[in-house]
Design a protein around this nucleic acid. Structure first.
Lengths: 220, 220
DNA sequence: ATACAAAGTTAGGTTAATCTAACAATATTT
DNA sequence: AAATATTGTTAGATTAACCTAACTTTGTAT
């Protein structure tokens, strides 16, 4: 099925929201704000995607991807993450620069391109932000993640991914000395505002709760 | 200046036409048919591009790119040919498959991406079809080309590029045993219909005039 | 349980890129 | 030079993706 750039973005946004919130059902306003359009616009598109059997929804109800819609959305995420990996590994892009360009590259239509790129990169399993890259069958390696904000003093954990892919956040992550697979010791937590003192490679930093909520870790 | 996908294609088409015909001035119908749209459509777009000072033209007159328009068009061709080279050299695409995908990739907006890709490919000077890749300053290595159809029996020449980039043509070129930098001996020419008997790597083939007009060569 | 707030929908309008059909200017041919 | 053909332009319509403003439905809180 040939979809427009825009239609693809709607499907991708729907999948992303369910990934991030853990909930299957999505609302019109939520979708609209994720795509930075007005609810009326999202509503129009939803009707179109329903016509095409890519979403399952009825008036005033919640939105769900159909299995076909989900398949397409996963393919887009696959392309996005493969391109990010390419930019990072082969073209020397930095962590915080890959996302923007991958947003464009993910819409290139060519099955052969995706397959060959995957091969060229030696079938990577995770992108530069630690997010899993769906394989050619659409299967995703899930590593059950907690956020840094769920850790308690004395814990040691390892950063596996970031939740927020925005440049300002990623640059801040680098500044704190953090990166994928780095070990983090939780030194203390401020009861009042939940600020956290952490140690990475011997360097201590104080980070906000908001920051800690955007770092995925696994226990050590 | 931020241009739409479509606007970029109009600029590229204008530059291509002047390249191919050798003439500076382009007509509305010619442009329209190159882009596979109706003349009325091309006319509308021309007005828009004139507003943006990218083309120079007046009612019922001929169309010219301004220097700014030409600069942008060259940049698009640069991207197109770099991507073709990438697909061919790094991703194992064949000669006749690269064009289509590069038509999409050429519109990706990221100066850094172009620069890094150029570096990654070790600053190639020619794409897989033998066409010169403009460098980062927009300079193009011109090799003064003749077509195979201009050769006479007894001549020996070397194929440097193809004029037609379509899949059917390129597949035919491969079938005849031809490739970039191959030596060609002109054995004979049929006076009646200008069919040519050529020899490549010891293999003799008979090719039509139309075919011969689409192969660029240099004298040996 | 009603009232109010939040979420979702509809109607009608805009812009970019396309079209068709009619018209105008330029070029070519006899 | 007049007739005809070619080329280019204009006017008005269409479609996709967006908008605002008004409305309806659903959910929440007193």
């Amino acid at each position: 099925m040939l979809l427009s750039y825009t239609e693809e973005n709607y499907l991708k946004a729907l999948l992303k929201i369910t990934f991030d919130s853990g909930v299957e059902k999505v609302g019109t306003n939520e979708l609209a704000s994720a795509l930075d359009v007005k609810p009326a616009t999202a509503n129009d598109m939803l009707k179109k995607l329903k016509e095409k059997m890519l979403v399952d929804y009825k008036k005033y109800g919640k939105i769900n991807l159909t299995s076909e819609g989900k398949k397409i959305a996963i393919e887009i995420i696959r392309k996005h993450r493969l391109w990010e990996t390419f930019l990072y590994q082969k073209l020397e892009f930095s962590w915080d620069e890959v996302h923007e360009v991958a947003e464009q590259l993910e819409h290139i239509q060519s099955q052969k391109l995706v397959d060959k790129l995957d091969k060229f990169l030696a079938y990577p399993e995770f992108d530069p932000h630690g997010d899993p890259i769906p394989n050619s069958k659409g299967e995703i390696k899930i590593h059950y993640k907690k956020t840094l904000s769920e850790m308690t003093p004395g814990n040691t954990c390892k950063m596996v991914a970031v939740k927020d892919n925005s440049s300002p956040f990623l640059q801040y992550v680098v500044k704190v000395g953090l990166g994928i697979n780095n070990e983090i010791n939780i030194i203390s937590i401020q009861e009042y505002d939940l600020m956290m003192v952490i140690e990475v490679n011997g360097q201590q930093s104080t980070v906000s709760q908001k920051f800690a909520e955007n770092i995925y870790v696994v226990n050590k």
